[in-house]
Design a protein around this nucleic acid. Structure first.
Lengths: 186, 186
DNA sequence: TTATCCATGTAAGAAGTTACATGATTGA
DNA sequence: TCAATCATGTAACTTCTTACATGGATAA
């Protein structure tokens, strides 16, 4: 599964331009898949070459024409074929967690600031997700959205309840073992 | 932050060969960062060129020599510099969630099987993580491990309590609106 | 005045994966 | 007998990101 399939999927929910696809990916998708314009536009052109989507042109005022893409019949088949394949493993890359893993190498103040920022971020993500939950969502969207909400809540709770593990303990441990500043400072 | 930094971080917790680094990344790291041999070995060589790590050779029986890497003083400085930078956004790519988003395009039986597999996977991940939680972990490791456990539990609970959203409702909705098989069949 | 939104696209480059080469040992 | 473990490494390839090009309209 790649950006091509993702575009096919988004288009299966309704026609859209490349620009709109990108915007839609910033909705509930955002938290489990991302794509840039630089990958979406070429993906759409390749999908069209393969006959999986087609487009009509809509004129714009002082702007490049808008290309509205639609999935073709064979595009729908191809999407189902792709979705029927066993999904690959999740790929996660969190620089925040890597940083926390090595929190004892950083000044406690810095760790606290990171933690504040992270908690604020999780709160805003949560608000954002909760605001999307209106009646009329497809079952798939509702499921995935609920998943995002549940996971984000768990993260937020965990951060609030366990930040002390990396904020004070690490520094205290250093002080107590007399290593404070011996390697890190200056 | 890339595989180079990650290797530097792993090595800051103790000397290791490339092979061992890979194994260690399959511990608590696994769930928020991944790297293959094809990226680790070149990364180590580049780190060494830059003077951030150095290695000693350990002879093996009928095997390539084992190269044990250690972080140098400037390597530690570089690691701290990297960790001090604001962490980039999390990147997540979950084919499972994409598939669930479009669950209504798939046979309900298939969705159920996917769900069973996913729940089993989450359970084994959870067991695996819980088994790692022994006294003596660094605060950073404990924090990150607890995070993984909390998030995995939340996922597991959500899946168990909400799988019905994509297993029965979607199909029922199709049947009820008389669209069953009109597009998907044949 | 500066940034953001709209709108498409290309080109260069980064980063990483997969597959291969080599090969003995150990366990199922 | 087949797969996995240990052990390092390279090369080809895929995939995606970043930066650029274009440019009017609108909001801060």
């Amino acid at each position: 599964m790649d950006v091509r399939t993702l575009c096919l999927g988004v288009l299966s929910m309704g026609p859209a331009s490349g620009y709109e696809i990108k915007k839609r990916l910033e909705g509930p998708f955002r938290h489990f898949y991302d794509a840039s314009f630089g990958s979406i536009y070429p993906a759409l052109n390749r999908l069209e070459e393969a006959g999986l989507v087609e487009h009509t042109v809509e004129a714009q005022h002082n702007r490049p024409d808008k290309k509205i893409f639609r999935v073709t019949a064979s595009g729908r088949l191809e999407l189902m074929r792709e979705l029927a394949e066993p999904p690959g493993e999740d790929r996660v890359r969190s620089e925040f967690l890597v940083t926390m893993m090595f929190a004892d190498l950083l000044p406690a103040r810095h760790v606290s600031e990171l933690m504040d920022g992270r908690i604020a971020l999780m709160r805003s993500v949560l608000e954002h997700l909760e605001a999307m939950d209106y009646p009329g969502l497809s079952p798939g969207k509702r499921f995935v959205l609920g998943y995002g909400i549940a996971v984000t809540r768990a993260k937020l709770e965990y951060l609030e309840e366990n930040r002390h593990l990396v904020e004070s303990d690490a520094l205290l441990a250093q002080v107590q073992s007399g290593r404070a500043g011996s390697e890190a400072a200056d």
